[in-house]
Computed example of a mutant assay.
Amino acid sequence: MAVKEEAELYEPVKRYFEAQGYEVKGEVLHCDLVAIKPGALADDALAIEEEVIIVEMKRTFNLALLLQGVERLRMNPLVTLVVERNRKKSGAVNQRFGDITELCRMLGLGLMTVSLFKTKPALVEMLCEPGDPPRARYRAKRHDRLLREFRERSGDYNVGGSTRRKLMTAYREKCLRMADALRQGPASPATLARLTSNSKAGDMLRTNYYGWFERAERGIYRLTAQGTAALTEHAEVIAGWLVQENAVSVAGTGSSAEASASETASDYASKPKKKSRKKKPEKI
């Protein structure tokens, strides 16, 4: 049941905090709801400081609610955001509550959802408490995969932010290199692995993810019509490889020439110099 105004969320949230021993009041210094749990006396007769929670409510989670929560953190360390959780397909169920919860954890905010029903009491769910530590952790495997994907691409062939377009991934580029090698004729996986410096050429040929390859005979593969079309479609990428290879070869030739020149100079410098003999004056 979708709410029409955020004020409809107030009563369920108020009952939730009152059931936990909080005193609740609405619209306190522009805060939608403020819940305070009175301080108690411990065994050592020392007063425990009262707990204060500021609550901000919106019909759906949006940037305005998030910024409002961050602003409230300047007033109080414990802040909880509340949104409706509409279980209809067209409602807020499509929101990514897992990611939103993690975002709130990173900012030190709490997150609560309220589901309203026509014939039964509202369901209040606390997805994270204010001050909960974030659960997201650095994962070395994902980091290594990112670096490997970056390094195995020979160039920047994609436009960042584009959608519904074929991406030139490292895997696609490896398949394209094999297709370019098969342009000369059928070949074995071992030959393609040597020509393309791809140790997984055999597995990629058997998987045939893009449908570019087919078995001509036992242990020999050739291009399909789709593979030939891919060579035409990605002609610019293949041309870029040739430019890179030429640049590398030129750089290698230059470095070898410089090395030989330096070796010649060093050899010349290391050779012992012959002493010059003075000519005797001729007798007249």
Rank of each mutant, 00 (worst) to 15 (best):
M1A: 14
K4S: 15
E5A: 10
E6W: 04
E8H: 08
E11M: 09
P12I: 06
V13T: 03
Y16H: 08
F17W: 03
F17V: 02
V24G: 05
G26D: 06
G26L: 06
G26K: 09
L29N: 13
H30I: 07
I36H: 01
D43R: 13
L46C: 15
A47Q: 15
E50N: 10
E50Q: 15
E51R: 15
I54K: 01
F61M: 10
L63D: 13
L63N: 12
L65D: 00
L66T: 01
L66P: 03
Q68W: 03
V70I: 11
E71A: 11
R72M: 08
L78G: 03
V79Q: 00
V82A: 04
V82K: 02
V83Q: 01
V83M: 05
E84M: 02
R85T: 03
N86L: 08
K89A: 14
K89Y: 10
K89L: 10
A92M: 07
A92R: 11
Q95H: 14
Q95T: 05
F97Q: 00
T101I: 03
E102M: 05
M106E: 11
L107I: 00
L109P: 01
T113I: 04
T113Y: 02
A122L: 02
A122H: 04
L123I: 13
L123M: 08
V124H: 01
E125Q: 14
G131Q: 04
P133I: 06
P133M: 07
A136V: 09
A136N: 07
R137G: 04
R139A: 14
A140I: 11
H143Q: 14
L147W: 10
R151M: 10
R151T: 09
E152G: 05
R153L: 06
S154G: 15
S154W: 03
G155L: 05
Y157S: 03
G160E: 10
S162W: 03
R164E: 10
L167D: 05
A170F: 02
A170C: 11
A170Y: 02
Y171D: 03
Y171Q: 07
K174N: 12
D180I: 00
A181R: 07
R183N: 14
Q184K: 13
G185E: 11
G185Y: 06
P189Y: 00
R194L: 11
R194P: 04
L195S: 06
G202N: 08
D203P: 04
M204S: 05
R206Q: 11
T207Q: 14
T207W: 04
W212Q: 01
R215H: 10
G219R: 08
Y221N: 02
L223Q: 04
T224K: 08
A225K: 13
Q226F: 01
A229V: 02
E233S: 06
H234L: 05
H234R: 12
H234F: 08
V248S: 12
S249K: 13
A251W: 04
E258Q: 09
A259Y: 09
A259G: 14
S260R: 11
S262Y: 08
T264N: 11
Y268F: 12
P272T: 06
K274I: 08
K275F: 06
S276F: 12
K280F: 09
E282A: 14
I284G: 15
